[in-house]
Design a protein around this nucleic acid. Structure first.
Length: 215
DNA sequence: ACCCAGGGTCATA
DNA sequence: TATGACCATGGG
């Protein structure tokens, strides 16, 4: 499996990323929702607003009005829809008994429950499961699809679940720490190897291969 | 001015 | 099942 050798190369080149950047598990979960299709620096501003208002908790978020919540998270974009999603998530989190209760669930069941929340899709759920619950799920994002498809290691038309299964099989003997670092390395340095989305297949492929050390 | 960022939902075919 | 529209801010 070359999925493992790509990891070795990335880790050796860039070192540990120490993810997820947050002060608490709840902050990770909030960040996972707010970062949907959004630059992280904007999420940081939104989270800073919540902290300054002492609103980074399920209670404060559930007690606030839609307008107030939307105003706090405005810098992260899509603020109306994300205000609803955050509220949905907090309702669910409260109802499920928060971390201490949820941590008892097996990974597959935890994932299934997370996906029931309107506003939490596969990637957001897996961010939460991996970084807040420290379970071995591999988060598939746009860079992962792009890079591995250009390396010829995955089918370009492969869906989320299929890719996830492929990675999790290849990394089944690895630790949670490896899952953690691998996704972080792809997100932080993925744009390094392939800056633009468009199709400079040749140059992108060449750069990816060079960085990652495959022929 | 244009493109994109640590996506997801819903309607349509 | 697979696209497309939509959400919306901020940096390059």
């Amino acid at each position: 499996m070359r999925i493992r050798s790509v990891y070795q190369r990335l880790y050796k080149t860039y070192g540990p990323q120490q993810w997820w950047p947050a002060d608490s598990r709840f902050e990770i979960m909030v960040g996972a929702v707010l970062t949907q299709n959004t630059a992280w620096v904007n999420v940081e501003r939104a989270i800073a607003n919540l902290k300054q208002a002492s609103a980074l908790s399920t209670e404060a978020i559930l007690d606030s009005s839609h307008e107030q919540l939307a105003e706090w998270i405005r810098p992260s974009g899509y603020f109306n829809i994300k205000a609803s999603r955050l509220r949905n998530f907090c309702q669910w989190y409260q109802q499920q008994g928060q971390y201490d209760r949820l941590k008892r669930l097996k990974t597959a069941l935890l994932r299934q429950r997370l996906l029931m929340v309107n506003g939490v899709g596969p990637e957001t759920a897996d961010d939460i499961i991996l970084y807040a619950f420290a379970r071995k799920v591999f988060v598939i994002d746009a860079y992962t699809k792009r890079i591995f498809s250009r390396l010829g290691l995955s089918d370009p038309s492969a869906g989320y679940e299929s890719l996830r299964a492929q990675f999790e099989k290849a990394l089944s003997k690895e630790s949670v720490k490896t899952f953690n670092e691998y996704h972080a390395l792809i997100v932080v340095h993925g744009k390094d190897v392939c800056k633009v989305k468009p199709r400079c297949e040749q140059c992108c492929l060449a750069r990816v291969c060079q960085r990652v050390g495959l022929d």
